[in-house]
C-alpha cells in the first residue's frame, strides 16, 4: 500500500504527536514554541485511527526536556513526545502530570501579587476525580486548569 506522509519527517528536534484536535494551537501559544525561531511544522485535524482527529507539532533543533514534556500533560495527557536525532527517535517521553508548573501561565486572580512583581508564576498541580486543579503559590487560590489556561 502506498503511504504518504502528511507532515514532513524531521531530521532533528521534537515531535509532539497525538495532541487532541484543537489543542495544538494552544500548546504552540502557551509554550511559546514559535519564539524559538526554529522551523515548526504544525498539523491540525489530521486523521488518527485511535483518536479520530489529532494535532501534531514538529519543532526542529529543539529537544524538549522531561519537565517541559510533563507540562504538556496538562493539555494533552495522552500526547507522545519523541526527541529525534538524525531521523531516529532517541528519546520517548512518558508524560506525567508535573507537581508544579512555573512561568507558563498567569494567575487568573487579578489581585494576586505575582502580576506586579519580578517573579515567575508558580502553580501546584493536583489531579482530582475529573479535573486538574492548580493552586497559585502566592495567592493560594485554587483554579481548574481550564480557567488557568485561557487567561494568558
Amino acid at each position: 500500500m502506498q503511504y504518504t506522509r502528511t507532515v514532513e519527517a524531521l531530521k532533528q528536534g521534537t515531535v509532539i504527536d497525538h495532541i487532541p484536535a484543537g489543542q495544538g494551537v494552544n500548546i504552540l501559544r502557551l509554550f511559546k514554541l514559535a519564539e524559538t525561531g526554529e522551523r515548526i511544522t504544525v498539523g491540525l485535524n489530521l486523521s488518527s485511527r485511535h483518536m479520530g482527529a489529532k494535532d501534531i507539532i514538529k519543532v526542529e533543533n529543539v529537544a524538549l526536556t522531561e519537565e517541559q514534556a510533563n507540562e504538556l500533560a496538562l493539555f494533552a495527557p495522552k500526547a507522545t513526545v519523541n526527541v529525534i536525532d538524525n531521523f531516529e527517535v532517541v528519546k520517548k517521553h512518558k508524560l506525567e502530570l508535573p507537581e508544579s508548573i512555573e512561568g507558563i501561565f498567569a494567575c487568573p486572580n487579578s489581585n494576586c501579587i505575582s502580576h506586579a512583581e519580578p517573579v515567575k508564576s508558580h502553580f501546584f498541580v493536583k489531579a482530582q476525580a475529573k479535573d486538574i486543579k492548580m493552586k497559585c503559590k502566592y495567592c493560594e487560590k485554587v483554579f481548574s486548569k481550564d480557567i488557568v489556561a485561557v487567561v494568558r
Binding site: 501579587i113 505575582s114 512583581e117 502566592y138 495567592c139 493560594e140
Partner: peptide, 27 residues
C-alpha cells in the same frame, strides 16, 4: 498588604522572618 500572596512573595526577598498580618482576602 492589599494584594493576595504579598507575604509569600516578601518572604522570598527578605533576609529576616516575615510575619503575615493579612494579605488581601487570602490569609
Amino acid at each position: 498588604h492589599p494584594k493576595e500572596g504579598a507575604a509569600r512573595l516578601a518572604s522570598e526577598f527578605s533576609s529576616v522572618p516575615v510575619i503575615n498580618g493579612g494579605d488581601g482576602s487570602n490569609q
